[in-house]
């Protein structure tokens, strides 16, 4: 074997890529050639030095997040996009909300679909034994009950003095996510107040709509989306929403 051949094959020997026959030939050459033996030793030293030094890079966290974000999320139902993020209860989504990178705009069709689901949830809740998971007229009992069940803590406000009795709270399921429902009553009418986290902290004024004979008052404030659903008349439901919002403001200021 010539030095020229050995200078190429010595690398394959170092890398353990030579078959036994060729390995023996290269080794035989190296035994008889001080030049090639010294070269091989140097290559091995360099190889060792590289293996022992930190020459790789760590992918930036931001890159990992961008890739994660581009992949469909496990719990999310397919093709529902923006509104899912409105129900930001997953950790990845919360992280995005925290960075304020994403402003969520509810698209009309999504909004419509959610309202449908909210009304269905309201109807389910009226079936016997489905209305309330925690029965209490005490806001200090209902509010802690949600702790640990949801990533968001729905505000629970006693509106008895304003003519709306707090009767309890419930976990419900809307838009493929768990959602908090705070339940009130006026006379014999049930009001479900659904509360979900949203990445958008902008305040959105109330909108009242009617679906399948139920009235829905929807608004957003301080990173939460609210849907109040009831068979109460639009005027009384509006009254409920107004009182709830002013009580919230009073709470924040007090």
């Amino acid at each position: 074997m010539t030095c020229e051949e050995a200078e190429v094959l010595v690398h394959a020997l170092i890398d353990g890529e030579l078959d036994a026959g060729h390995a023996r030939e290269v080794e035989a050459h190296i035994e008889g050639c001080a030049h090639c033996a010294a070269l091989m030793k140097e290559y091995q030293e360099i190889r060792q030095a590289i293996a022992e030094s930190d020459v790789s890079y760590k992918a930036p966290l931001e890159l990992r997040r961008k890739i994660e974000k581009a992949l469909p999320q496990q719990q999310a139902a397919p093709s529902r996009r923006s509104v899912l993020r409105g129900f930001a209860m997953g950790s990845a989504v919360s992280a995005m909300a925290a960075t304020g990178l994403i402003a969520i705009v509810l698209r009309n069709d999504d909004e419509q679909r959610i309202e449908n689901e909210v009304v269905s949830a309201h109807l389910r809740s009226l079936q016997a034994g489905h209305l309330i998971d925690v029965v209490s007229t005490d806001q200090h009992t209902v509010k802690p009950w949600f702790n640990g069940k949801l990533d968001v803590s729905p505000p629970v406000i006693d509106l008895t003095a304003q003519g709306f009795t707090l009767i309890g709270g419930r976990l419900d399921y809307v838009n493929a996510r768990e959602i908090g429902a705070v339940v009130y009553k006026r006379r014999q009418h049930v009001i479900n107040l659904f509360v979900a986290q949203t990445a958008n902290t902008e305040r959105k004024p109330a909108k009242v709509s009617t679906l399948q004979g139920f009235n829905i008052r929807r608004w957003s404030d301080r990173g939460l989306n609210y849907w109040a659903v009831s068979d109460l008349g639009a005027d009384e439901l509006t009254e409920f929403g107004d009182k709830f919002e002013s009580a919230m403001r009073a709470n924040k200021e007090g």
């Binding site: 961008k66 581009a70 992949l71 469909p72 999320q73 496990q74 719990q75 999310a76 397919p78 093709s79």
Partner: peptide, 10 residues
């Protein structure tokens, strides 16, 4: 980068 709906398989 957004993955198309057809790719949306959890």
């Amino acid at each position: 980068m957004v993955v198309k709906a057809s790719q949306d398989d959890p």
